[in-house]
């Protein structure tokens, strides 16, 4: 299930806690996924069509799912711009196929 996935090691903030958890953020040609860093189990997968918008900063990366999910998904990473460009590239490919 992880064939063709680009992985980024990021840190997730646990809800209600001040603890950061290592996590793998996977990007494929048509989805973004949360993957367990140790077991490589896919915890959650979002098709790119459910991502309303995203934002990269030097220290973070955030996904906004609009109507599909109430809260943002935000992680700490210094690779936000790379994740952003990879997603943008895959979306460009999807758009060109139409």
């Amino acid at each position: 299930r992880t064939y063709g996935v680009s992985f980024f090691l990021v840190k997730e903030k646990m809800k209600g806690k001040n603890k950061l958890v290592p996590r793998l953020l996977g990007v494929t040609k048509d989805s973004v996924m949360r993957v367990d860093e140790k077991t490589k189990e896919v915890l959650q997968e979002w098709p790119l069509t459910t991502v309303k918008r995203w934002a990269a900063s030097p220290k973070s990366f955030t996904l906004d799912f609009g109507e599909y999910q109430e809260s943002y998904y935000s992680v700490q990473t210094t690779e936000g711009e790379q994740i952003s460009q990879l997603i943008a590239g895959y979306i460009d490919i999807i758009l060109k196929k139409k």
Partner: peptide
């Protein structure tokens, strides 16, 4: 990035 607007850091997804 082609065909995409950047406003306050957010990139809008055209296939959403």
């Amino acid at each position: 990035v082609m065909g995409r607007s950047r406003e306050s850091g957010w990139v809008e997804n055209e296939i959403y």
